[in-house]
Write a protein that binds this DNA or RNA. Structure first.
Length: 698
DNA sequence: GAGTCGACTTGGGTTAAACGAT
DNA sequence: ATCGTTTAACCCAAGTCGACTC
């Protein structure tokens, strides 16, 4: 017994240690991205060439002609291109028509079905679930179109428009210069948009106010225009209070009322949320037209505050097949156009008035058309895996090129590969926030340090990327890259382009020559997925399920850091961390209490040696074990959350990580897929879940 | 080539619904 | 059953990239 006791103590101690280990192991900060990247780097043999660059001619234009032999090597033929079926898919319209009718029958039944559903939902659920499972369509087992068409048959009900404006009740007043004023409906509507945003910081911003005021005036009657001459004299407070009260009231609604709204939403979803594409009913992504409001771009957007106007049927272009039942515009209105273009995937489009860009209604990520594309994306990234060494060798070679444009291209590509930067298209100045990607980096965005701390040739990046998210990174580069950067910077102003001989079009044309289908963004996909796979291999150990999931999240996090997917720490972060800590403390108390009890029980057993006391010991031991597990779970959760404070995992999970890697990992370690992917994600990745086995290699 | 347009993917934030503790 | 917290759905802006035009 004594021996056992000791062993137990030892075990307890060990467990505590392990918990500590979980907490502190691999606790990376943003430096981890550096560490990770350099480690990753080692696979492509960094040789530090001591050779200095040859002196370059002063005038860029006078660069030596491009050597002819320096052409890209031919791309390797893919040996498992088979994996992605490319055979022709023959789908006869007849078949589609037949299907269409089946669908219509379904529709008719909808009402009765719905009633039934609520009634005997419970009774049939199990059965129904199974049945639906069997009916799930595996598009990934079918052949794809090869003629560039996206569908043969498309039928839908058109968009759902934003509800019309409801004028404010008379008791809600607007004041100008202290005096009450009744606004015309159009002016009032736009005023309410502003009022709804009053609590936001941006209504205090100059550009926002200026843009809003300018567009607001356009909606005013001439009388209103003459009275309202200064936005600062407008008082929206009452409107704002009214809307706050309204949303409060919505929260306070009774169950029945909420239920009613829910049912109405469900009805709309059933009617407008689906379409038929070819032989299948598919979920639409965004079937509601964006309501009017004030445009709020991200970052320092020159157009913030502008009025985003209401979209009418006359603005809408419908896309469907000729032989389908066309969607009807609301009574008394007409569509702008109805077309039958099966070379595109959208169902509805309209032009938005802020940037003049086109917006679309398209299918949900679970649809065939999106899924195929997604799958294809990862197959392209896997093809890159096969030739990435060759490409890396080549761009390293190009650092020595006699041509400036080739050197720039090679350095840019190095950044895109190593740092997972975006391509960086040019943008129209003054139309959008000032953000950049790789090709559009400017001199002011990098700093060169021949020596920084212990490291040589450090480049410091500091710029605003997509969505005005800051990219900040200090990274040691090879001498040759460093020297090239110095060269690129010569005689330039801070606002000049770093890569003045390069743009995304040139870069992508080059990449296309290196590998069929290769573009700048493929590197992001490739590096994200390969990093996940490597990290999973490295981090996952024989351990409890929560610990394994922590490992998964950490691997995911490494990718998010690589891709610079940041988020603002949730407003409730500190509080929720505290709550969790309180729980942990409580659990710890519970644990020591349970341990004490166990000890007492053991002592008791030692004294009496009877059956009853032996059983008590067992019971107490189990209790301790259970509490330990719970504690462990909580601690893992706390660690996970803390590490995730400023990092957004969603984007990489949804857009960059080959889902088959995750599926394979789940199968290998017997983790239920539900722990990694929620319902929506499982729908989106159904193809991967179905096809990936535990030995899948990206 | 430069400029523009169109289609489609990627992105963080907000809001509503689901969940779980009490 | 209720309440507060967490999660997922929704929102729509902002990228990428190919095609087309001149």
């Amino acid at each position: 017994d004594k021996h056992k006791e000791k062993e137990h103590k030892h075990k307890d101690h060990k467990k505590d240690k392990e918990r500590e280990k979980i907490k502190h192991s691999n606790r990376y900060t943003f430096f981890f991205s550096l560490k990770l990247r350099t480690e990753h780097e080692s696979i492509f043999h960094l040789e530090r060439s001591p050779t200095a660059i040859k002196s370059e001619p002063e005038d860029d234009n006078g660069f030596y002609p491009s050597p002819k032999h320096n052409k890209a090597p031919k791309r390797e033929k893919d040996d498992d291109e088979e994996e992605y079926p490319k055979k022709v898919k023959v789908e006869h319209d007849k078949k589609a028509k037949k299907r269409k009718h089946e669908y219509e029958d379904d529709e008719e039944e909808e009402d009765t079905k719905h009633k039934k559903k609520t009634k005997d939902k419970k009774a049939t659920e199990g059965k129904k679930g199974k049945k639906e499972e069997e009916e799930k369509w595996k598009w990934w087992e079918e052949e794809r179109y090869t003629d560039g068409s996206k569908w043969r048959f498309l039928e839908h009900k058109g968009p759902v428009f934003a509800p019309p404006y409801e004028p404010l009740p008379n008791k809600v007043k607007f004041y100008y210069d202290g005096k009450q004023m009744k606004l015309s409906a159009p002016a009032e509507e736009v005023a309410t948009f502003f009022a709804k945003m009053l609590d936001h910081e941006y209504t205090t911003k100059d550009i926002f106010r200026k843009n809003f005021y300018k567009d607001w005036r356009k909606e005013m009657t001439s009388e209103e225009k003459s009275i309202i001459t200064d936005l600062n004299k407008c008082e929206f407070r009452e409107m704002s209070e009214y809307f706050k009260a309204q949303s409060e009231a919505r929260k306070q609604m009774s169950k029945e009322e909420k239920q009613k709204i829910k049912e109405e939403n469900e009805r709309i979803l059933q009617e407008y949320g689906f379409c038929i594409m070819d032989n299948h009913k598919e979920r639409i992504g965004n079937f509601r037209i964006e309501p009017p409001g004030l445009f709020r771009g991200r970052g320092d957007h020159p157009k913030m505050g502008m009025l985003k106007r209401r979209i009418r049927p006359e603005d809408i272009i419908i896309n469907c097949s000729k032989d389908s039942k066309q969607p009807k515009p609301p009574p008394g209105t007409k569509w702008k156009e109805v077309r039958h273009d099966n070379k595109v995937t959208w169902l509805v489009s309209w032009t938005e008035n802020i940037q003049g860009s086109i917006k679309y209604i398209m299918l949900n990520p679970s649809s065939r058309i999106k899924g195929e594309k997604d799958w294809q994306k990862y197959e392209t990234a896997r093809r890159l895996k096969k030739c990435v060494d060759r490409i890396r060798t080549q761009y390293r070679d190009d650092w020595k090129s006699k041509e400036m444009r080739i050197r720039q291209r090679a350095v840019a590509l190095y950044f895109i590969d190593k740092l997972a930067l975006r391509a960086g298209n040019e943008k129209e100045e003054g139309e959008t926030a000032d953000t950049v990607g790789c090709c559009s980096l400017r001199v002011e965005h990098i700093k060169l340090y021949p020596k920084l701390d212990e490291q040589e040739y450090v480049v410091e990046f500091d710029f605003l990327g997509k969505d005005s998210i800051r990219y900040y990174n200090k990274i040691p580069v090879e001498k040759r890259v460093f020297k090239n950067l110095q060269l690129f910077l010569e005689n330039k102003q801070p606002e000049d382009d770093l890569f003045d001989r390069l743009n995304t079009s040139i870069l992508n044309k080059h990449l296309q020559e290196l590998m069929d289908g290769l573009t700048a963004k493929v590197f992001r996909t490739y590096n994200a997925s390969i990093t996940l796979q490597q990290q999973l291999k490295e981090l996952t150990s024989e351990d409890s399920i929560p610990a394994k999931i922590l490992s998964y999240n950490r691997a995911n996090r490494a990718v998010a850091i690589l891709c610079n997917h940041q988020r603002a720490p949730p407003k409730t972060f500190e509080k929720s961390m505290q709550n969790l800590q309180t729980k942990i403390d409580e659990k710890q108390k519970q644990l020591s209490a349970a341990r004490k009890q166990l000890k007492a029980a053991k002592a008791d057993h030692k004294a009496s040696h009877d059956e009853k006391s032996r059983k008590t010991v067992e019971v107490k031991r189990k209790a301790v074990q259970r509490i330990e597990e719970q504690l462990m779970k909580l601690q893992v959760q706390a660690t996970d959350r803390e590490e995730n404070k400023q990092i957004a995992l969603g984007t990489s999970k949804l857009n960059y990580l080959d889902p088959r890697i995750s599926v394979a990992w789940c199968k290998k370690w017997s983790i239920p897929i539900e722990k990694i992917y929620n319902k929506t994600q499982r729908e989106k990745f159904a193809w991967a879940i179905d096809m990936a086995e535990k030995d899948y290699e990206f």
